[in-house]
């Protein structure tokens, strides 16, 4: 469905995307995962025909982005992070306009409209003025305008940003249901979102594709077993000795925290690494007060792929939350 070969995109002298190559099949939900400024949105905008590539080729359904950008745009539905909506219009009126602007006849739009309204659960809102809707409903209208012309590919840039937890759950349902109609590309910097929604992930760092695969495959490729924080009863030396001698540990840091010793441990790959670690410290005579997962396998893989930049960002997000 989508073939990208050697895609490079410059903004002035700055290369936002460098030599990116990948292919995406029909009816896949693919997540583009990367830090802010990694180049995710630029890649998606080139696929959507909003930007032209500086080098390389992009083909969607056999249509080349450079040779026939107008036809390419008819195959794509695009929702940017902030839904582009004419707020003075009613939902239904807006969707009719959007469908026709994307090349459908009034008859085709009228046939599609009820399906789209049902899919995006906009039935009760269809006669309301967009300006009166909540942020969650505006996102839904944004998705509806992106699919009203039955595109082969739907691109959603940060679809859950700004939504509350309930809206996020509902949005996931909508996104998953889009798979029945189209290939779906999602850009996100939220790891859990990508893990929950997508069949496959492309990790982008510094404008380059640094990994691709399912979330499980990524964790396996990177050998990331996740991280845990242990709160242990015992001396610092005893904890260090126990952790150093465990096969389940690849790295650790130890801090003395009042009566307890706190150890941040990076686990070795494998499903049982966490269990083995706990059994090992108990066998070493240490008291286990608490074991908390701090970084999931996917996060661990992401950290290894994007190194220092990601770690700093995750720490910042953790601190903020």
């Amino acid at each position: 469905m989508i073939e990208v070969e050697g895609l490079t995109r410059y903004y002035g002298d700055f290369a936002a995307v460098q030599d990116a190559s990948f292919s995406i099949g029909e009816r896949e939900i693919v997540g583009f995962l990367g830090l802010n400024g990694a180049g995710k949105s630029t890649i998606l905008k080139v696929i959507a025909g909003l930007l032209m590539p500086s080098a390389g080729t992009v083909r969607v359904g056999g249509v080349d982005a450079l040779e026939d950008p107008d036809t390419l745009r008819t195959k794509i539905g695009f929702l940017p992070e902030e839904p582009p909506l004419y707020r003075e219009m009613q939902v239904r009126e807006f969707l009719r306009w959007a469908g026709q602007a994307k090349g459908c006849s009034a008859k085709e739009v009228d046939a599609e409209l009820p399906k789209v309204i049902e899919l995006c659960d906009l039935g009760t809102m269809q006669h309301k003025v967009i300006d009166e809707l909540s942020h969650g409903y505006r996102k839904r209208v944004g998705i509806a305008q992106a699919i009203i012309h039955r595109p082969e590919v739907v691109i959603l840039d940060e679809p859950i940003s700004g939504l509350d937890p309930q809206q996020i759950v509902e949005m996931r349902k909508v996104v998953r249901s889009l798979k029945e109609r189209a290939t779906v590309l999602i850009s996100s910097h939220i790891l859990t979102e990508v893990a929950v929604t997508c069949d496959r992930v492309l990790v982008i760092h510094g404008g380059r594709i640094v990994a691709t695969g399912s979330t499980d495959e990524l964790a396996e490729q990177q050998g990331g077993g996740g991280s845990v924080t242990l709160s242990l009863r015992g001396t610092v030396d005893a904890v260090k000795e126990a952790l150093s001698s465990s096969d389940a540990v690849t790295d650790f840091e130890v801090d003395e925290d009042e009566a307890l010793v706190r150890a941040d441990v990076t686990l070795a790959d494998g499903e049982r690494a966490r269990d083995e670690l706990v059994a090992h410290v108990v066998a070493a005579g240490l008291g286990v007060f608490a074991v908390a997962d701090t970084v999931s396998e996917l996060e661990q893989a992401f950290l290894q792929l994007t190194r220092g930049d990601a770690k700093a960002t995750l720490a910042k997000e953790e601190k903020a939350s």
């Binding site: 107008d70 745009r73 794509i76 695009f78 090349g103």
Partner: peptide, 9 residues
């Protein structure tokens, strides 16, 4: 909203 017409044919 310019993206709406930019992403259209």
């Amino acid at each position: 909203t310019l993206v709406l017409i930019d992403s259209s044919p």
